[in-house]
Design a protein around this nucleic acid. Structure first.
Length: 287
DNA sequence: CTGGTCAACGGGCTTT
DNA sequence: AAAGCCCGTTGACCAG
């Protein structure tokens, strides 16, 4: 344990501010011992501002009348340890526990209360830091996801324009009759359009505030399932493709036409496909 | 010298 | 009204 010490403010000898007293853990706080000297901080106390001495001599008188306080201003590690343990049990302080702790630690109840207040503030700051770190990592992950989606979107767009060119060529060549497209061509274009449209919407959602979450989930086998809110994501003439495969369409459902579009294996007329693709292109442009 | 930490304070607000 | 809490701030201390 350190011996007592009295510390004077550097300006004390030449100003009205006066010296400051420090205290230690084991002994009562000098402030409490001599409230007249340093002032009373409790609510309802005589003064709101902390009064200071008018002359160093007064201080010495007061000081030497009392036991020498220990010089340490900070609480001892034992005191802190016990306070920490108590804080861990319960971070609020009932009056009985306050007095109990104060007695055990040789502190003023007020000191114990202040320690708990400061400790709660420190805990809150740490909690804020943790929350910030957590939010930042989710933000980073989201940003990564967003970038990947943008890239995918870009890739699909160029694929779309390639297909549009192909269609244009087909139109020019097949003026006299029906152009036969393989199901792969057809499937690729429609499936890509679907994915493109959904991704575009998803990107918009991610970027808009208050986004309620993803509308499209990655399903097993590379399929993209459109969830219940899909209707709003799809153009009117593009209802309800329940299960869309990125590389081809394999509808498991029957061929009923309850608001769903189906594409039969095999032939597909140029006229029909042209209408479909143009409608989808329009939708893309408008959205 | 500077920046961080800690004990303590003052004021505003809520609860009893 | 009193007591307690929170928040922002102050001043001492300390390490780099």
């Amino acid at each position: 344990m350190d011996s007592g010490r009295l510390i004077f403010d550097s300006a004390s000898s030449s100003s009205s501010r006066g010296p400051l007293l420090l205290w230690g853990g084991g002994n009562p706080v000098l402030r409490a011992v001599s409230p007249v000297v340093v002032g009373v901080a409790e609510k309802g106390g005589a003064s709101k501002r902390r009064p200071f001495f008018t002359s160093p001599d007064e201080v010495y008188e007061e000081y030497y009348e009392e036991q020498l306080p220990e010089k340490k201003r900070r609480l001892t590690s034992e005191q802190v340890h016990l306070l920490e343990r108590s804080f861990k049990e319960e971070n609020k302080l009932e009056p009985e526990r306050k007095s109990e702790l104060a007695q055990m630690l040789g502190l003023q109840p007020r000191q114990v209360a202040v320690w708990f207040q400061n400790r709660r503030a420190r805990w809150k700051n740490k909690q804020l830091e943790r929350d910030f770190d957590q939010l930042k990592s989710s933000y980073d992950a989201l940003l990564f996801d967003h970038d990947a989606l943008l890239k995918d979107n870009h890739r699909l767009r160029s694929q779309l324009s390639t297909l549009a060119e192909k269609l244009e060529e087909a139109n020019e060549q097949g003026a006299s009759g029906v152009t036969v497209l393989t199901v792969d061509d057809q499937a690729a274009s429609t499936a890509d359009l679907t994915v493109l449209n959904i991704q575009q919407k998803k990107v918009e959602d991610m970027l808009s505030p208050g986004s309620g979450g993803s509308a499209v989930v990655e399903a097993e086998g590379g399929h993209h399932l459109v969830e219940s809110s899909r209707e709003s994501y799809l153009p009117e003439n593009y209802h309800c493709v329940e299960l869309v495969d990125v590389v081809g369409i394999h509808s498991e459902d029957d061929m009923s036409d309850e608001g769903c579009s189906y594409y039969p294996d095999g032939m597909f007329t140029e006229h029909h496909q042209q209408e479909e693709v143009e409608a989808q292109l329009d939708w893309c442009i408008w959205n």
